[in-house]
Design a protein around this nucleic acid. Structure first.
Length: 421
DNA sequence: TCTGGGGTCCTAGGACCC
DNA sequence: TCTGGGGTCCTAGGACCC
């Protein structure tokens, strides 16, 4: 059996953990730039606020119901996530951290009739240790555990836990709309609806070859998993990542090259910092820019360009310089850009034995760069990110709208909660 | 006026190898 | 009239996830 532990309305729950006055009220957390709604409390969902809704379209509704609105506070959410995952790791023999708010668990060691109690215990312990409410689903495959989790959230009678036994699978899948199945996205569900397939059960009963033909191997895997045939295993060690990306939408249109260069320089530098923090090197740098999604075609512009570095690098200077060159190739005067980003690829571990040196380097640069990057990271970790930076980076990161930011309760000494007695 | 950010995997087609 | 067989690697685009 697989378990899936999923935090309820995670970002909202993080805000609530430090602000109990928010309990029982409608609360939403917004995306960067305060653009869209990306997390909603139960009360906010009940008001009819959709996931991903642009804020400006719902400003009246938000105001009328006095919805509490938060700008995203990712340092807080990341830290709270680590607390939840640590607690789960202590309680369960094997977990796979699947996303910031979800983990799969290996439940094979437990007797079936104990699972309900085990899950209940996990739920109450996580809540007690972190203040975050979770829902737990269990099933014969990961996809069935996902489905069970969905039911645990949807059915009040479940009280946050749903252990799906093989004999109950048909009933459960019959009540699950096909677009709620893990691995069936917008496109496939529209296609399936068109074919008269509306529920997870109807999908599961389709002939295997038909699914393979129309939904390819990934769809076929989902199909098999729904039929109780495990295709996905628990991955307790995270596979090394393949790319690192930093990108932002701008609060306004950016037309000047030097402003764009500030932004791209800042993103490239953040990428390099992440790269070193994960003990990696990169050999490919990609820059992309584009105008707004909703711009008229004649005013739209954008694209991406990739360059290969002469040798695998971990240097902020190399990466920022390369990104600037790429940006100049992409930039076109007269367009209002709304988004830009930098992606690092060709990642490899930063082990001396594994690094391919540059054919034209003399090896000394390498040592000096290493010392410089160590100094850069040390200064910035002590005095705050951006304390020491390249001149091309903008001083305060890239300015974004964030009008309702909560304190960094758990990751910044200046923001720690004060208790007066 | 105002619409997020960061990822992975698969497939088809083209270029190339012997 | 007839024009091989068996591969790899790369890229773009599309699908999905949170």
């Amino acid at each position: 059996m697989f378990g899936l532990i999923d935090c309820n309305n995670f970002y909202v729950s993080c805000e609530r953990a430090f602000n109990p006055g928010l309990l029982g009220r409608p609360v939403v957390v917004l995306s960067n730039n305060d653009g869209c709604i990306i997390s909603r409390s139960q009360e906010a969902k009940a008001l009819g606020l959709p996931m991903g809704a642009p804020v400006f379209k719902y400003s009246q509704l938000l105001e009328r119901h006095r919805v509490a609105i938060f700008s995203p506070n990712f340092p807080l959410y990341g830290d709270m996530s680590a607390r939840v995952m640590n607690t789960l790791g202590d309680l369960l023999p094997g977990i796979e951290i699947y996303s910031i708010d979800e983990a799969f668990a290996d439940l094979c060691g437990f007797r079936h009739d104990d699972l309900q109690a085990v899950a209940g215990e996990v739920r109450s312990t996580v809540l007690r240790h972190t203040g975050i409410p979770v829902s737990i689903g269990a099933g014969r495959t990961k996809t069935l555990a996902k489905a069970a989790n969905h039911l645990a959230k949807k059915r009040p009678a479940c009280r946050g836990v749903c252990v799906l036994e093989a004999r109950d699978e048909r009933n459960a899948l019959a009540s699950l709309p096909v677009d709620e199945v893990w691995g069936i996205g917008r496109r496939y569900s529209r296609f399936l609806q068109g074919e008269g397939v509306g529920t997870a059960l109807e999908f599961a009963l389709l002939p295997r070859e038909w699914v393979r033909r129309h939904l390819h191997v990934t769809g076929a895997r989902v199909h098999a998993e729904l039929n109780g045939e495990p295709c996905l295993s628990l991955e307790q060690v995270r596979p090394p990542r393949k790319s690192i990306c930093v990108s932002r939408s701008f609060g306004r249109k950016v037309t000047q090259l030097d402003e764009l260069e500030n932004a791209v320089g800042t993103f490239a530098s953040k990428c390099a910092q992440k790269l070193r923090a994960e003990g990696l090197r990169a050999s490919l740098v990609t820059v992309f820019v584009h105008t707004g999604h909703y711009e008229r075609p004649e005013r739209s512009s954008g694209g991406h360009r990739t360059a290969a570095m002469p040798a695998e690098t971990r240097s902020t200077i190399d990466i920022v310089r390369c990104a600037s060159v790429l940006l100049r190739e992409l930039y076109r005067k007269g367009f209002g850009y709304k988004k830009a980003g930098v992606v690092l690829g060709g990642l490899a571990p930063d082990a001396a034995s594994a690094v391919t040196p540059s054919l034209f380097g003399d090896g000394q640069d390498e040592e000096r760069t290493a010392a410089l990057m160590l100094a850069l990271d040390t200064v910035n970790s002590r005095y705050g990110s951006g304390a020491l930076r390249l001149a091309v980076e903008s001083p305060s990161g890239w300015k974004q709208r964030q009008e309702n930011l909560s304190p960094r309760y758990t990751t910044d000494w200046d923001d720690i909660i004060e208790v007066r007695t």
